[in-house]
Amino acid sequence: MSSEAVTAQPAPKGNGWEPKIVAFCCNWCSYGGADSAGMGRFQQPASARIIRVMCSGRIDPLHVFNAFLEGADAVLVTGCHIGDCHYVNGNDKTKIKYKYIENVARELGLEKERLQLNWISASEGEKFANFIRDVTEQIKKIGPSPLKPEGVA
């Protein structure tokens, strides 16, 4: 595993503000990917809060928009690679549903960086870590979510 580069030295200090990202992960793939990131010690910003569901097909617009209304700077919808779904094709349905969620997010004036879909397998720890790092960087550039209630960090 090529984890040396990441684990060898402390992460550089940021500008202080750390976005808060809600990541919905499916039990079989992306949650496992996050576990693999841990096992490989792939360092990443402490911005993500993972919520586990059994299948990405369970991720409801209700969950996504509640996260934004509570103060999430970004929401991540993640699951197994297409064709690898533990429940045959739950992620195909996620993909379709995601388009609608995306449309509503645009209507609400949320930038495209704030809502992202990614397929991550249980072995792709490095991919998971890179994803969190990339999203965190993107969000740091555009700042806190416009939907964030006052008084929420």
Binding site: V53, I59, D60, H86
Partner: peptide, 26 residues
Amino acid sequence: KGCGTCVTACPTGALEQSHFKNKQIL
């Protein structure tokens, strides 16, 4: 198998996934 995909699709909220109910996730 308890994936919960049907729950998200249910337009009336009649379906729930045990252990991953909406209120639990929320």
